[in-house]
Design a protein around this nucleic acid. Structure first.
Lengths: 124, 124
DNA sequence: TGTTTATTTAAGCAAATGCTAAAATACAAT
DNA sequence: ATTGTATTTTAGCATTTGCTTAAATAAACA
């Protein structure tokens, strides 16, 4: 695999091994977390997630209107979020309402709090 | 823009407008945050960021070794992270060391703490 | 039953992503 | 100056993403 022209005579072998162990140990957590962050890392989906956090539940139509996007486009984002269990649905008559799952509500809450207070530029 | 077949006779206009205002108000924060999360949402880059958090600084070669990836591939990830100011560099002789910027260290810390304790499955 | 309302799904496409392999750059040390 | 070490950059390519448009479901209601 490695076309490794870098021999690193100075490498700290202990450090390298410690890191390798750490990565192996936390591998499942990295997968879980990057999976969620990948979805939250899209501008539109981050807004959707935040709006669901604040409003508890919204339907595709609401989001389409709020975000100024096609219903179809929003629906496809919602499907991704639902497939990976970031959100869940509840039907009320003709309308399907989406809401955050508890898992991801907890996981993303630190960000939502920062967003809520619009403190991005102060925190950093 | 809208091929909107959804008239939403039941829509809560107040709610919609409140959400629109909120999105407009926080627009810059959404951009900033999704920009960072997009990068952290990649499995490889999340590991890199976490390793830099734990080890303070590492070079491409170290990361290539730890992650079992080509130096070139890692370097390209590092460039993205550097371009968007998630990490910064410091040269020491031939070796270029990467480290987290303070902004993103603070922003991502909640996740790193969860990862550090490998508590993903407990938190959720 | 058929029609309206709400929503999803499928096909298609331009743009972005993440990698490999090869070439280029940067600096150190002789 | 020349060589060695560390790293970046480029070109190319397969895959994925996010959208549009059009067609397909799903359930409520006349």
């Amino acid at each position: 695999m490695e076309n490794n022209s870098c021999i690193r005579q100075q490498a700290d072998i202990k450090q390298i091994n410690r890191c390798k162990d750490r990565v192996a140990e936390l591998n499942g957590s990295f997968d879980y977390l990057s999976n969620g962050l990948e979805l939250a890392g899209n501008n539109v989906r981050l807004k959707i997630l935040f709006l669901l956090y604040e409003e508890k539940q919204l339907c595709v139509c609401d989001l389409s209107d709020i975000l100024g996007m096609t219903i179809s486009a929003v629906s496809q984002h919602l499907r991704k979020l639902k497939d990976r269990k970031l959100i869940e649905t509840e039907r009320q008559a003709q309308t399907i309402f989406y809401s955050l799952t508890n898992e991801y509500k907890n996981l993303l809450e630190p960000f939502f709090i920062i967003l809520d207070e619009n403190k991005i530029l102060e925190t950093i």
